[in-house]
Design a binder for these strands. Structure first.
Lengths: 236, 236
DNA sequence: GCATCCCACAGAGCAATGCTCTCGTTGGTT
DNA sequence: AACCAACGAGAGCATTGCTCTGTGGGATGC
């Protein structure tokens, strides 16, 4: 537990009182940072401001997060998880056989979350931060939304509601295809990734104002976009 | 010429020698800033560093750009224009009747430009910069790529190669619809905006690494995504 | 031709940032 | 009881965006 986190003490086992208060303070810092992020965006997130609000010296924060970027990473992971969970929960609330409804639910939940947390969303799907290279820790949670919509298709194929689309393309990694039982449906797999990216493209456009003065009813437009992708995936 | 540019002297008419050298220096500053932006990204763009490279005091730069954000705005407008021009030129090189080919050309050009100028692209379609609100000056150039792909559909409708899609939705601003002769084809209009956002979603996903370890052949995948949108638009 | 005026530039300065280093204190372990 | 690692505070460094003040020079008016 010191590879990328430097020689910062472990957090995992809060057995001692010290470890407990440490975990407490760590999450407290992250919480304050999250509110700062939510109000001012990533650029307005200042370690010193967080420290000030917590009435501690700025240098003390470095005992908990080796750098501002590490704080950001924590926030990013949390955000990915929150977004993923929102999509998962929404999708889980729809009848398993209603494939299109499940897609709509997941996508709408992602959009709702993005509208509710614009700055955090921008952190996830906007430009990568400064000299920031997405650390390993983010790749897992980052895929949760994608996993949800892939799961819909997989269920459809497993139940026979969907049959593989004709043709075959070699664009998606074979291990990924195998992981999601899409080896025999590569065309649909490519379109799935396309739908995934299109989903966040649409959300990003709305969020960043690119559709301002163009789209008047974003809810309906978003539904239409998702429907288009559902058509491309041949969801019933 | 002093509304948003403060009381900075006009640049428009370089009649006097002074105005000429002024225009010269202004573009020189922008050029240096552009290279800094291209190498380090928007966050690494420092007015002082630009001034240093130009061997002038940092305060002198403020004679030309009232603030760092104004410098950034100039760069953004230029980038929008460069991207738009790339798409326009590529699209113009395809036979007018080949609607799908025109779409592919425009989209591929946009992708190529984005890959060649990742930081500038991130500035346009990534998260909005810090406390930065897109000024009026950017909205025109920002639409150029969209205008290109809308033009393809309009040409198709005008020539009779395309017929309006059945149905009617009220999601797109009526003035925009009228401007592009799409009043009677609202379903296609909505999908057009969807394709537009999907295009940049796909490019952004590739650029920001979201498809890393998932998509193996980005050229082919991107073509597939564009083809999906072309299908949705019923391009022959 | 001279006086005037305004633009351009430099330099100092302010508030703020991320991060480092040092130094005293304190909690937990042996 | 003694020790050590963790902890927190404060000062300090380099950097940033931006403002203010002073000064020189080229363009302009008479």
């Amino acid at each position: 537990m010191l590879s990328k986190w430097g020689r910062i003490p472990t957090v995992s086992a809060p057995r001692t009182a010290r470890a407990r208060v440490r975990a407490q303070l760590t999450s407290e810092i992250a919480d304050v940072a999250r509110t700062h992020l939510a109000t001012g965006g990533a650029a307005a997130l200042s370690l010193r401001a967080v420290a000030r609000e917590l009435r501690m010296a700025s240098s003390a924060v470095y005992r908990y997060f080796p750098s501002r970027d590490d704080l950001l990473t924590t926030l990013i992971v949390d955000a990915y998880d929150a977004l993923g969970e929102a999509a998962e929960q929404a999708e889980a609330g729809v009848a398993r056989t209603d494939l299109r409804g499940r897609l709509h639910a997941a996508c709408a939940a992602a959009r709702d979350w993005a509208l509710a947390h614009p700055h955090e969303y921008a952190l996830l799907y906007g430009s990568p931060v400064p000299g920031y290279a997405a650390p390993e820790a983010t790749i897992g949670p980052a895929g949760r939304v994608g996993t949800v919509i892939v799961g819909i298709v997989r269920d459809g194929l497993a139940s026979g509601a969907l049959t593989p689309l004709p043709g075959s393309v070699d664009t998606i990694d074979s291990r990924v295809l195998a992981e999601f039982d899409l080896t025999d449906d590569t065309v649909r797999a490519a379109r799935l990734v396309g739908a995934w990216s299109g989903l966040f493209g649409a959300i990003g456009f709305e969020l960043h104002g690119h559709t301002h003065n163009i789209v008047t009813d974003h809810v309906a437009w978003f539904r239409a976009v998702v429907d288009t992708h559902a058509d491309a995936l041949a969801l019933p």
